[in-house]
Amino acid sequence: MILELDDVTVSFTTGPPLRRRRLDAVRGISLAVAEGETLGVVGESGSGKTTTSRVALGLQRPTSGTVLFDGRPFPRRRRDLAGRIQAVLQHPHWSLNPRMRVGQSVAEPLAVLGRPAGSLVAEALEQVGLGAGFAERYPHELSGGQRQRVSIARALITRPSFVVLDEAVSALDVSVQAQILNLLKDLQAEFGFSALFISHDLGAVRYVADRIAVMRDGEIVETADAAAFYTAPEHPYSRQLLESL
C-alpha cells in the first residue's frame, strides 16, 4: 500500500470562547491506495473531501487515527518526502505562480531537490501535450486547460510514486475536461504512479478510478470497484449520486 488511512478523525473547534464546539471534518475514515492504483473519492462540498486530501498529502495531522505513507508515518520534516508526493489542485487560475514563467514553475520541484532540470522541463511539457515553447510563457497567457496541463507536468517531473488530484478538472469546460482526463490516464499508464482522485463529479471519478470511496458528512459511506458505479452501488446515497448524473 502506498497510502493507508486507518480510522482517521480530524476535528476543528469553532465558535466563540466558552461556547466552543468541536466539529469533525472527517470521522473515522479508513482507506488505502495500492501501488499503481487510482482511488476515487467522491462527495459534495462539506463532505470532508478536502480534509481527506490534506491528510493524504501530510498537510493536516489527524486528531486521531493513523496515516501511513509507503508503510511509514509521515516524517516530521516535509523535505524527507520531497519529490515522492505531488498534487494537482483544483483552481486552474491559482495553480501557477503568476510571476513565474511556466518553465520555472515546472522545474521548481527539481530545484527544491537540488537536481538539475536539464532537458526534463521540455520533455515534461511535451508529455502533457504542450510544446517545449510553453516554458517561456506566463500563466496569464494560457487557457484553463493549458494551465492544468502545466500543473500536471510540474507534479510528474519528479516521477512521484503518489499523486493527489483534488478537483483537478472541475473548473474546466466540459469539452476540455475530457482532454485532461484522457491525459491523466495515459500518463498513469506510462509512469505507473498511484493516485487519489478527488471530485464532486461521479462521472469523472468513475472514468479514471479503479475503486471509489463515497463520502458524506465526513464519513465514507461506501467503497467499491468503479464498475459498481455504472450499474448498482449499494448505498442509497451512492445510488442518488448515480441517478443525478
Binding site: 519529490g83 505531488q86 489542485l89 510571476r99 521548481e108 520541484p109 531537490l113
Partner: peptide, 26 residues
C-alpha cells in the same frame, strides 16, 4: 491559500523559498 503555494509546500520547498519565490512577489 493559493494552490501554487500549496504545491510548492507539497514539493518540499523550505520556508525561505516559499516566501521569497511565491508569497513576496505576489
Amino acid at each position: 491559500g493559493r494552490d501554487y503555494v500549496t504545491a510548492a509546500v507539497i514539493s518540499g520547498a523550505r520556508l525561505p523559498r516559499v516566501l521569497g519565490r511565491h508569497v513576496l512577489p505576489n
